[in-house]
Design a protein around this nucleic acid. Sequence first.
DNA 1: AACGCGCCCTGTCCGC
DNA 2: TGCGGACAGGGCGCGT
Length: 276
Amino acid sequence: MPELPEVETIVRQLAEPLPGKRILDVSVHRADLLREPAQAFSTGLQDQEILAVTRRGKNILLTLADESHLLVNLGMTGQLLFRPEEPLDDPPTHLGVRFLLSQGCSLLYVDIRRFGHLLRYSRTDWAKETTRLGPEPLGRWLNEPRFFAALSTSRAPIRSWLLDQTRVSGVGNIYAAEALFRAGVHPRRRANTLTTDESKALLKGIRKVLREAIRAQGTTLRDYRTASGDRGGFGPALHVYGRAGQECPNCKAAIERIVFANRSAFFCPHCQPETP
DNA sequence: AACGCGCCCTGTCCGC
DNA sequence: TGCGGACAGGGCGCGT
């Protein structure tokens, strides 16, 4: 579910209340969300102060007082919900982990499909791990020459390339479709066959659609919620994703859906010809 | 080595 | 109404 704009929205909301709060208690309801025993996970986080909340790709990072990090990856259906007061209502159906914080607050990790995970990293382990991930698409490091050079090393279909988090981190299936549409590039084109102009248009398209989606607080297809439990508002602004059979907003041709790498790809056959 | 595929899991929707 | 199949924002591990 959550791609860069959704995660960015959650992080911005959590960056206000969380820093300075202390983790008083951790209860693990779904141990398969972790990669270590629940006991070790809980005691490792217990009594730690949260210093900062940041984002790396599609990952939420809580930096703790001992310089370790708690990484939260939401998978398809993960939600990280902030509750400012002691909740009187029943716990959510798919509650995975509950963090009780100081001042009566709590942080809930909820995940229907449980494709997400929560992972602790020491400072040095995280430093190693973050180098595995590709550059931030909205960051300063990535520029047109670097983007084009990276594309030229791979013959994977461009949609698969964009979904590979070690190439660029944060783009998922929705925004890959939207960026490729804006650039006029067919999702199946091999990465190393894009021209410099197409590469430029694609980087521009990625940045534009991500920024616009952040402004709208992301896209809710079904399960995505912000940290305060609200839905994202970018759905109506999607041009091709999920719109098979409907009119292309540019040329009125019928938008098509194909499947490869086990994922749907949406595109306009007229604006994004497979052979240019 | 890089790439493509199957699979992890639950819920919903659609056609019969 | 019930039931099987397709499909859903991600990412890992395997085989080639």
